[in-house]
Amino acid sequence: MISIKNLSARIESKEILKGFSLEVKPGEIHAIMGPNGTGKSTLASVLAGREEYEVTGGEVTFNGKNLLELSPEDRAREGVFLAFQYPIEIPGVSNVNFLKTAMAEIYKYRGLEPLSAKDFLAYFKEKQAIVEMGNDLTKRSVNEGFSGGEKKRNEIFQMAMLNPKLAILDETDSGLDIDALRIVANGVNKVRNSENAFIVITHYQRLLDYIIPDFVHVMYDGRIVKSGGKELALELEEKGYDWIKQEVAEEA
């Protein structure tokens, strides 16, 4: 699905990603954990194509294509979805209209006929149920006046609608109460199948109680320093990150 090799990137003159590598296959869920400031969100931004970041080395192949050569919108159309850590408000644009426009663009790129109004509505309702989004939220403008939790749920709702091949969840669990966390995780579990994949960036093990990862990676100083199964997350929860930092220091 996606193959990231030795990826380095900086913002202004600050090097943030330093030789990051990761291989994700269809059907897999990869969790990326790590202390603050190690480049987790930068990774998400670079993969989505944020222009402020300059890629200084490495390569990223997404389903056979050089992802780094694609514009942000083409990456989205190819099936890369980013659930934003801080979802953006677009006043005056309804969720329905926003998603209709987005889907039409993605379908056009893939050479597909857009859904009819009736089919779109049926599809919309079906996905709404996945994240327990009421009409009160979907009818409103994109994220405008939404609470933190509602914004995150809306991200997952958009993900369900756009049905990406690879979804990157950037700290989607932060700021969620336990009920919202369950709804978001349920949404992910309902969307996941053997053909799509997830990169879940998180600080806390608790999300991984609901979304069971196939792999857990620890990111530190711009790259992955330790990988393991889901039990690694539990170990981190218990012991914190210091022992990893120490391991890295000893290696160096």
Binding site: A48, G49, R50, E51, S71, P72, E73, R75, A76, R77, F81, L82, F84, P87, I88, E89, I90, P91, G92, V93, N97, F98, L99, T101, A102, M103, E105, I106, Y109, S141, Q158, L162
Partner: peptide, 26 residues
Amino acid sequence: DQIFYCKQRGLDNEKAVALIVNGYCR
């Protein structure tokens, strides 16, 4: 940020601006 958010959902620059402005004028 608004433009990038729209792009990440598959809209190009012009469409993103048109959508945001239409919302602004609603």
